[in-house]
Design a protein around this nucleic acid. Structure first.
Lengths: 190, 190
DNA sequence: CCGCAATCCTAGCATCGCTAGCGAATCTGC
DNA sequence: GCAGATTCGCTAGCGATGCTAGGATTGCGG
Protein backbone atom coordinates (compact mmCIF):
# COMPACT_ATOMS: atom_id res chain seq x y z
CA UNK A 1 0.00 0.00 0.00
CA UNK A 2 2.68 2.42 1.02
CA UNK A 3 4.75 1.56 -1.94
CA UNK A 4 1.83 2.27 -4.18
CA UNK A 5 1.42 5.61 -2.49
CA UNK A 6 5.00 6.44 -3.28
CA UNK A 7 4.38 5.48 -6.88
CA UNK A 8 1.48 7.81 -7.17
CA UNK A 9 3.42 10.54 -5.47
CA UNK A 10 6.31 10.16 -7.88
CA UNK A 11 3.97 10.10 -10.76
CA UNK A 12 2.29 13.32 -9.67
CA UNK A 13 5.70 14.87 -9.15
CA UNK A 14 6.72 13.90 -12.66
CA UNK A 15 3.58 15.40 -14.06
CA UNK A 16 4.35 18.67 -12.34
CA UNK A 17 7.88 18.48 -13.70
CA UNK A 18 6.54 18.16 -17.22
CA UNK A 19 4.36 21.24 -16.91
CA UNK A 20 7.13 23.20 -15.20
CA UNK A 21 9.62 22.25 -17.90
CA UNK A 22 7.19 23.23 -20.63
CA UNK A 23 6.53 26.56 -19.00
CA UNK A 24 10.17 27.42 -18.37
CA UNK A 25 11.21 26.35 -21.83
CA UNK A 26 8.44 28.36 -23.41
CA UNK A 27 9.22 31.44 -21.38
CA UNK A 28 12.93 31.32 -22.07
CA UNK A 29 13.00 30.20 -25.70
CA UNK A 30 9.44 30.46 -26.97
CA UNK A 31 6.88 27.79 -27.74
CA UNK A 32 8.64 26.75 -30.91
CA UNK A 33 11.41 25.39 -28.76
CA UNK A 34 8.99 23.28 -26.75
CA UNK A 35 9.06 19.94 -28.52
CA UNK A 36 8.12 16.62 -27.02
CA UNK A 37 11.69 15.39 -27.41
CA UNK A 38 13.13 18.41 -25.71
CA UNK A 39 10.58 18.13 -22.93
CA UNK A 40 11.37 14.47 -22.43
CA UNK A 41 15.08 15.24 -22.18
CA UNK A 42 14.36 17.97 -19.65
CA UNK A 43 12.56 15.65 -17.26
CA UNK A 44 15.05 12.86 -17.99
CA UNK A 45 12.49 10.42 -19.26
CA UNK A 46 11.76 9.09 -22.68
CA UNK A 47 9.30 10.70 -25.02
CA UNK A 48 6.33 8.33 -24.64
CA UNK A 49 5.98 8.93 -20.90
CA UNK A 50 4.59 12.33 -21.75
CA UNK A 51 1.66 10.59 -23.37
CA UNK A 52 0.94 8.58 -20.25
CA UNK A 53 0.33 11.87 -18.47
CA UNK A 54 -1.19 14.01 -21.19
CA UNK A 55 -3.18 13.23 -24.28
CA UNK A 56 -0.80 15.23 -26.41
CA UNK A 57 1.28 18.34 -26.62
CA UNK A 58 -1.83 20.51 -26.61
CA UNK A 59 -2.87 19.10 -23.27
CA UNK A 60 0.51 20.01 -21.81
CA UNK A 61 0.12 23.54 -23.10
CA UNK A 62 -3.33 23.69 -21.60
CA UNK A 63 -1.91 22.71 -18.22
CA UNK A 64 0.64 25.50 -18.53
CA UNK A 65 -2.16 27.88 -19.43
CA UNK A 66 -4.13 27.00 -16.31
CA UNK A 67 -1.06 27.76 -14.20
CA UNK A 68 -0.90 31.08 -15.97
CA UNK A 69 -4.39 31.97 -14.83
CA UNK A 70 -3.35 31.42 -11.24
CA UNK A 71 -0.58 33.96 -11.63
CA UNK A 72 -2.76 36.38 -13.54
CA UNK A 73 -5.50 36.23 -10.92
CA UNK A 74 -2.93 36.92 -8.22
CA UNK A 75 -1.53 39.91 -10.09
CA UNK A 76 -4.98 41.36 -10.65
CA UNK A 77 -6.03 40.82 -7.07
CA UNK A 78 -2.91 42.54 -5.79
CA UNK A 79 -3.48 45.52 -8.04
CA UNK A 80 -7.14 45.78 -7.08
CA UNK A 81 -6.72 45.63 -3.32
CA UNK A 82 -3.81 48.06 -3.33
CA UNK A 83 -5.66 50.73 -5.24
CA UNK A 84 -6.67 53.96 -3.53
CA UNK A 85 -10.20 54.17 -4.84
CA UNK A 86 -12.54 52.32 -7.14
CA UNK A 87 -11.72 54.30 -10.22
CA UNK A 88 -8.00 53.97 -9.70
CA UNK A 89 -8.49 50.24 -9.18
CA UNK A 90 -9.72 49.88 -12.77
CA UNK A 91 -6.64 51.66 -14.06
CA UNK A 92 -4.30 49.66 -11.86
CA UNK A 93 -5.87 46.33 -12.73
CA UNK A 94 -5.75 47.17 -16.41
CA UNK A 95 -2.09 48.08 -16.09
CA UNK A 96 -1.42 44.87 -14.20
CA UNK A 97 -3.14 42.88 -16.92
CA UNK A 98 -1.09 44.51 -19.65
CA UNK A 99 2.09 44.12 -17.63
CA UNK A 100 1.40 40.44 -17.16
CA UNK A 101 1.01 39.92 -20.89
CA UNK A 102 4.14 41.92 -21.52
CA UNK A 103 6.22 40.15 -18.90
CA UNK A 104 5.09 36.60 -19.74
CA UNK A 105 4.35 36.61 -23.44
CA UNK A 106 4.73 32.86 -23.87
CA UNK A 107 2.45 32.18 -20.95
CA UNK A 108 -0.11 34.63 -22.24
CA UNK A 109 -0.05 32.98 -25.65
CA UNK A 110 -0.71 29.61 -24.09
CA UNK A 111 -3.64 31.05 -22.18
CA UNK A 112 -5.35 32.83 -25.03
CA UNK A 113 -3.86 32.31 -28.44
CA UNK A 114 -2.43 28.83 -28.77
CA UNK A 115 -4.57 26.58 -26.67
CA UNK A 116 -8.00 26.34 -28.15
CA UNK A 117 -9.78 23.62 -26.29
CA UNK A 118 -9.62 24.96 -22.78
CA UNK A 119 -13.23 25.02 -21.65
CA UNK A 120 -14.18 28.61 -20.98
CA UNK A 121 -17.68 29.69 -21.62
CA UNK A 122 -19.26 26.54 -20.28
CA UNK A 123 -20.23 25.11 -16.93
CA UNK A 124 -16.91 23.41 -16.26
CA UNK A 125 -14.53 26.33 -16.47
CA UNK A 126 -11.33 25.60 -14.56
CA UNK A 127 -11.61 27.26 -11.17
CA UNK A 128 -8.44 29.29 -11.64
CA UNK A 129 -9.67 30.67 -14.91
CA UNK A 130 -12.92 31.71 -13.31
CA UNK A 131 -11.04 33.39 -10.50
CA UNK A 132 -9.09 35.61 -12.87
CA UNK A 133 -12.30 36.64 -14.55
CA UNK A 134 -14.00 37.25 -11.21
CA UNK A 135 -11.15 39.51 -10.20
CA UNK A 136 -11.81 41.65 -13.23
CA UNK A 137 -15.53 41.67 -12.54
CA UNK A 138 -15.08 42.77 -8.94
CA UNK A 139 -12.91 45.62 -10.10
CA UNK A 140 -15.52 46.77 -12.57
CA UNK A 141 -18.56 46.30 -10.36
CA UNK A 142 -18.52 49.83 -8.92
CA UNK A 143 -18.28 51.44 -12.36
CA UNK A 144 -20.50 49.16 -14.40
CA UNK A 145 -23.51 51.31 -13.74
CA UNK A 146 -26.72 49.93 -15.15
CA UNK A 147 -25.01 47.53 -17.52
CA UNK A 148 -24.91 43.81 -16.90
CA UNK A 149 -21.70 43.16 -14.97
CA UNK A 150 -20.75 40.04 -16.86
CA UNK A 151 -21.21 41.67 -20.23
CA UNK A 152 -19.38 44.74 -19.00
CA UNK A 153 -16.47 42.66 -17.76
CA UNK A 154 -16.24 40.62 -20.91
CA UNK A 155 -16.20 43.71 -23.07
CA UNK A 156 -13.55 45.46 -21.01
CA UNK A 157 -11.54 42.29 -20.96
CA UNK A 158 -11.77 42.14 -24.74
CA UNK A 159 -10.38 45.64 -24.93
CA UNK A 160 -7.42 44.69 -22.79
CA UNK A 161 -6.86 41.48 -24.71
CA UNK A 162 -7.01 43.28 -28.02
CA UNK A 163 -4.54 45.90 -26.88
CA UNK A 164 -1.92 43.44 -25.73
CA UNK A 165 -2.27 41.02 -28.62
CA UNK A 166 -2.21 43.66 -31.32
CA UNK A 167 0.77 45.32 -29.72
CA UNK A 168 2.67 42.10 -29.24
CA UNK A 169 2.17 41.13 -32.87
CA UNK A 170 3.50 44.46 -34.04
CA UNK A 171 0.13 45.85 -35.09
CA UNK A 172 0.31 48.71 -32.63
CA UNK A 173 3.26 50.89 -31.79
CA UNK A 174 4.55 50.16 -28.35
CA UNK A 175 5.23 53.83 -27.68
CA UNK A 176 1.56 54.77 -27.48
CA UNK A 177 0.61 51.86 -25.27
CA UNK A 178 0.04 53.91 -22.13
CA UNK A 179 -2.17 56.37 -23.94
CA UNK A 180 -4.33 53.62 -25.36
CA UNK A 181 -4.58 51.95 -22.00
CA UNK A 182 -5.59 55.22 -20.35
CA UNK A 183 -8.17 55.83 -23.04
CA UNK A 184 -9.69 52.39 -22.61
CA UNK A 185 -9.85 52.79 -18.84
CA UNK A 186 -11.40 56.22 -19.25
CA UNK A 187 -14.12 54.78 -21.44
CA UNK A 188 -15.01 52.11 -18.91
CA UNK A 189 -14.34 53.71 -15.56
CA UNK A 190 -16.76 56.56 -15.41
CA UNK B 1 10.57 40.54 -76.09
CA UNK B 2 6.97 39.48 -76.44
CA UNK B 3 7.76 35.97 -75.42
CA UNK B 4 9.40 37.28 -72.31
CA UNK B 5 6.31 39.29 -71.57
CA UNK B 6 4.21 36.17 -71.78
CA UNK B 7 6.59 34.47 -69.40
CA UNK B 8 6.24 37.18 -66.86
CA UNK B 9 2.51 37.19 -67.30
CA UNK B 10 2.31 33.46 -66.74
CA UNK B 11 4.53 33.75 -63.76
CA UNK B 12 2.39 36.46 -62.23
CA UNK B 13 -0.67 34.37 -62.95
CA UNK B 14 0.87 31.42 -61.20
CA UNK B 15 1.69 33.54 -58.20
CA UNK B 16 -1.91 34.66 -57.97
CA UNK B 17 -2.98 31.04 -58.27
CA UNK B 18 -0.81 30.13 -55.29
CA UNK B 19 -2.32 32.81 -53.09
CA UNK B 20 -5.82 31.98 -54.25
CA UNK B 21 -5.32 28.28 -53.59
CA UNK B 22 -3.94 29.00 -50.13
CA UNK B 23 -6.86 31.21 -49.32
CA UNK B 24 -9.51 28.84 -50.58
CA UNK B 25 -7.94 25.87 -48.88
CA UNK B 26 -7.63 27.75 -45.61
CA UNK B 27 -11.20 28.96 -45.74
CA UNK B 28 -12.62 25.56 -46.58
CA UNK B 29 -10.46 23.27 -44.44
CA UNK B 30 -8.49 25.53 -42.12
CA UNK B 31 -4.86 26.53 -42.12
CA UNK B 32 -3.73 23.15 -40.89
CA UNK B 33 -4.76 21.73 -44.24
CA UNK B 34 -2.64 24.26 -46.10
CA UNK B 35 0.63 22.43 -46.60
CA UNK B 36 3.19 23.20 -49.26
CA UNK B 37 2.59 19.82 -50.87
CA UNK B 38 -1.12 20.31 -50.99
CA UNK B 39 -0.67 23.79 -52.37
CA UNK B 40 1.68 22.53 -55.05
CA UNK B 41 -0.82 19.87 -56.08
CA UNK B 42 -3.56 22.47 -56.24
CA UNK B 43 -1.70 24.65 -58.72
CA UNK B 44 -0.45 21.56 -60.55
CA UNK B 45 3.21 22.34 -60.09
CA UNK B 46 5.86 20.74 -57.96
CA UNK B 47 6.60 21.86 -54.46
CA UNK B 48 9.79 23.86 -55.04
CA UNK B 49 8.14 26.32 -57.42
CA UNK B 50 6.41 27.82 -54.41
CA UNK B 51 9.80 28.89 -53.14
CA UNK B 52 10.64 30.66 -56.37
CA UNK B 53 7.66 32.92 -55.70
CA UNK B 54 7.68 33.19 -51.92
CA UNK B 55 10.38 32.94 -49.33
CA UNK B 56 8.41 30.35 -47.43
CA UNK B 57 5.00 29.33 -46.26
CA UNK B 58 4.77 32.36 -44.00
CA UNK B 59 5.19 34.66 -46.96
CA UNK B 60 2.30 32.95 -48.72
CA UNK B 61 0.15 33.42 -45.66
CA UNK B 62 1.17 37.05 -45.52
CA UNK B 63 0.04 37.49 -49.12
CA UNK B 64 -3.32 35.97 -48.23
CA UNK B 65 -3.53 38.30 -45.27
CA UNK B 66 -2.99 41.36 -47.44
CA UNK B 67 -5.82 40.22 -49.68
CA UNK B 68 -7.93 39.95 -46.57
CA UNK B 69 -7.34 43.59 -45.75
CA UNK B 70 -8.66 44.58 -49.14
CA UNK B 71 -11.90 42.76 -48.40
CA UNK B 72 -12.11 44.08 -44.88
CA UNK B 73 -11.57 47.66 -46.00
CA UNK B 74 -14.32 47.24 -48.58
CA UNK B 75 -16.73 45.85 -46.00
CA UNK B 76 -16.02 48.64 -43.58
CA UNK B 77 -16.34 51.32 -46.26
CA UNK B 78 -19.67 49.93 -47.36
CA UNK B 79 -20.99 49.91 -43.83
CA UNK B 80 -19.76 53.41 -43.13
CA UNK B 81 -21.17 55.09 -46.22
CA UNK B 82 -24.51 53.37 -45.91
CA UNK B 83 -25.08 54.48 -42.35
CA UNK B 84 -27.77 57.03 -41.55
CA UNK B 85 -25.78 59.18 -39.18
CA UNK B 86 -22.34 59.34 -37.64
CA UNK B 87 -23.25 57.48 -34.49
CA UNK B 88 -24.97 54.70 -36.36
CA UNK B 89 -21.92 54.46 -38.60
CA UNK B 90 -19.80 53.40 -35.65
CA UNK B 91 -22.25 50.67 -34.77
CA UNK B 92 -22.56 49.50 -38.36
CA UNK B 93 -18.83 49.46 -38.97
CA UNK B 94 -18.26 47.56 -35.75
CA UNK B 95 -20.89 45.04 -36.78
CA UNK B 96 -19.31 44.74 -40.20
CA UNK B 97 -15.93 44.14 -38.62
CA UNK B 98 -17.26 41.42 -36.36
CA UNK B 99 -19.21 39.88 -39.22
CA UNK B 100 -16.10 39.77 -41.35
CA UNK B 101 -14.16 37.93 -38.66
CA UNK B 102 -17.07 35.57 -38.18
CA UNK B 103 -17.57 34.89 -41.86
CA UNK B 104 -13.91 34.47 -42.77
CA UNK B 105 -12.24 33.04 -39.70
CA UNK B 106 -9.27 31.60 -41.53
CA UNK B 107 -8.65 34.83 -43.34
CA UNK B 108 -8.92 36.79 -40.12
CA UNK B 109 -6.41 34.48 -38.48
CA UNK B 110 -3.96 35.05 -41.28
CA UNK B 111 -4.38 38.79 -40.93
CA UNK B 112 -3.95 39.05 -37.19
CA UNK B 113 -3.04 35.87 -35.40
CA UNK B 114 -0.83 33.69 -37.53
CA UNK B 115 1.25 36.00 -39.64
CA UNK B 116 3.63 37.87 -37.43
CA UNK B 117 6.03 39.65 -39.71
CA UNK B 118 3.61 41.75 -41.72
CA UNK B 119 4.93 45.28 -41.31
CA UNK B 120 2.28 47.27 -39.49
CA UNK B 121 3.37 50.02 -37.21
CA UNK B 122 6.17 51.23 -39.41
CA UNK B 123 6.61 53.47 -42.40
CA UNK B 124 6.10 50.74 -44.99
CA UNK B 125 2.69 49.46 -44.04
CA UNK B 126 1.04 47.76 -46.99
CA UNK B 127 -1.35 50.21 -48.57
CA UNK B 128 -4.35 47.91 -48.21
CA UNK B 129 -3.71 47.46 -44.54
CA UNK B 130 -3.52 51.20 -44.06
CA UNK B 131 -6.76 51.64 -45.92
CA UNK B 132 -8.64 49.33 -43.60
CA UNK B 133 -7.32 51.24 -40.63
CA UNK B 134 -8.15 54.56 -42.24
CA UNK B 135 -11.70 53.39 -42.78
CA UNK B 136 -12.03 52.80 -39.07
CA UNK B 137 -10.47 56.15 -38.28
CA UNK B 138 -12.84 58.02 -40.58
CA UNK B 139 -15.77 56.38 -38.89
CA UNK B 140 -14.57 57.40 -35.48
CA UNK B 141 -13.48 60.93 -36.36
CA UNK B 142 -16.84 62.53 -35.55
CA UNK B 143 -17.04 60.86 -32.13
CA UNK B 144 -13.41 60.99 -31.05
CA UNK B 145 -13.89 64.31 -29.30
CA UNK B 146 -10.73 65.77 -27.87
CA UNK B 147 -8.80 62.52 -27.97
CA UNK B 148 -6.11 61.86 -30.52
CA UNK B 149 -7.83 60.16 -33.46
CA UNK B 150 -5.13 57.60 -34.05
CA UNK B 151 -5.03 56.52 -30.44
CA UNK B 152 -8.80 56.49 -30.33
CA UNK B 153 -8.99 54.31 -33.43
CA UNK B 154 -6.35 51.91 -32.23
CA UNK B 155 -8.10 51.47 -28.90
CA UNK B 156 -11.50 50.90 -30.45
CA UNK B 157 -9.96 48.53 -32.93
CA UNK B 158 -8.40 46.62 -30.05
CA UNK B 159 -11.80 46.26 -28.49
CA UNK B 160 -13.23 44.81 -31.67
CA UNK B 161 -10.27 42.54 -32.15
CA UNK B 162 -10.47 41.31 -28.59
CA UNK B 163 -14.17 40.59 -28.90
CA UNK B 164 -13.86 38.51 -32.03
CA UNK B 165 -10.74 36.62 -31.03
CA UNK B 166 -11.95 35.74 -27.55
CA UNK B 167 -15.27 34.65 -28.94
CA UNK B 168 -13.78 32.58 -31.70
CA UNK B 169 -11.50 30.76 -29.31
CA UNK B 170 -14.40 29.89 -27.05
CA UNK B 171 -13.52 32.36 -24.31
CA UNK B 172 -16.78 34.27 -24.69
CA UNK B 173 -20.23 32.89 -25.18
CA UNK B 174 -21.46 33.56 -28.66
CA UNK B 175 -24.96 34.28 -27.42
CA UNK B 176 -24.01 37.56 -25.76
CA UNK B 177 -22.01 38.81 -28.69
CA UNK B 178 -24.46 41.48 -29.76
CA UNK B 179 -24.73 42.88 -26.28
CA UNK B 180 -20.98 43.15 -25.92
CA UNK B 181 -20.71 44.79 -29.30
CA UNK B 182 -23.41 47.28 -28.42
CA UNK B 183 -21.70 48.04 -25.14
CA UNK B 184 -18.36 48.64 -26.81
CA UNK B 185 -19.93 50.91 -29.40
CA UNK B 186 -21.79 52.77 -26.69
CA UNK B 187 -18.53 53.42 -24.85
CA UNK B 188 -16.85 54.84 -27.93
CA UNK B 189 -19.64 56.52 -29.87
CA UNK B 190 -20.73 59.29 -27.59
C1' DC C 1 9.52 -18.81 -6.22
C1' DC C 2 6.99 -17.95 -10.22
C1' DG C 3 3.51 -15.98 -13.37
C1' DC C 4 1.48 -11.63 -14.41
C1' DA C 5 0.79 -6.85 -14.75
C1' DA C 6 2.44 -2.40 -14.90
C1' DT C 7 6.07 0.64 -16.46
C1' DC C 8 9.24 2.58 -19.49
C1' DC C 9 12.32 2.51 -23.49
C1' DT C 10 13.88 1.69 -28.33
C1' DA C 11 12.55 2.13 -32.76
C1' DG C 12 9.81 3.70 -36.18
C1' DC C 13 5.79 5.97 -38.90
C1' DA C 14 3.75 9.67 -41.39
C1' DT C 15 4.12 14.28 -42.24
C1' DC C 16 5.98 18.77 -42.14
C1' DG C 17 8.85 22.93 -44.33
C1' DC C 18 12.55 23.39 -47.08
C1' DT C 19 16.74 22.50 -50.31
C1' DA C 20 20.29 20.33 -53.25
C1' DG C 21 21.20 18.97 -57.69
C1' DC C 22 20.07 17.22 -62.16
C1' DG C 23 17.85 17.51 -67.12
C1' DA C 24 15.59 19.73 -70.28
C1' DA C 25 14.19 23.77 -72.53
C1' DT C 26 15.35 28.40 -73.85
C1' DC C 27 18.05 32.44 -74.79
C1' DT C 28 22.62 34.55 -76.30
C1' DG C 29 26.83 35.44 -78.90
C1' DC C 30 29.46 34.14 -82.80
C1' DG D 1 22.35 28.16 -87.69
C1' DC D 2 24.85 26.45 -83.85
C1' DA D 3 27.49 25.77 -79.48
C1' DG D 4 27.62 27.44 -74.84
C1' DA D 5 25.36 29.60 -71.03
C1' DT D 6 21.23 30.32 -68.39
C1' DT D 7 16.90 29.72 -66.74
C1' DC D 8 13.32 26.61 -65.28
C1' DG D 9 10.93 22.98 -62.97
C1' DC D 10 11.42 18.48 -61.46
C1' DT D 11 12.87 14.28 -58.45
C1' DA D 12 14.76 13.05 -54.38
C1' DG D 13 16.00 13.70 -49.93
C1' DC D 14 17.20 16.06 -45.29
C1' DG D 15 16.20 17.10 -40.62
C1' DA D 16 12.64 17.69 -37.42
C1' DT D 17 7.97 17.27 -35.77
C1' DG D 18 3.95 14.76 -32.94
C1' DC D 19 2.73 10.43 -31.90
C1' DT D 20 2.55 5.08 -31.45
C1' DA D 21 3.59 0.08 -31.62
C1' DG D 22 5.92 -3.53 -29.44
C1' DG D 23 9.34 -5.49 -26.60
C1' DA D 24 12.14 -5.57 -22.28
C1' DT D 25 12.55 -4.90 -17.51
C1' DT D 26 10.85 -4.27 -13.14
C1' DG D 27 8.14 -5.37 -9.14
C1' DC D 28 3.79 -7.11 -7.05
C1' DG D 29 0.46 -11.01 -5.71
C1' DG D 30 -0.37 -15.84 -5.01
Amino acid sequence: MSIQARRERERAERERAIVAAARELAESEGWDAVTTRRLAAEIEYSQPVLYSHFKGKDAIMAAVAVEGFVDLAADLAAARTAAIDERQAVADVAAAYAAFAERRPALYDAMFTLTVYLPFASQDVPVDVARAFAELAETLRPVAGGDDLETYTETFWSGLHGLVTLMRSGRLRRADHDRRLALLVDRFAR
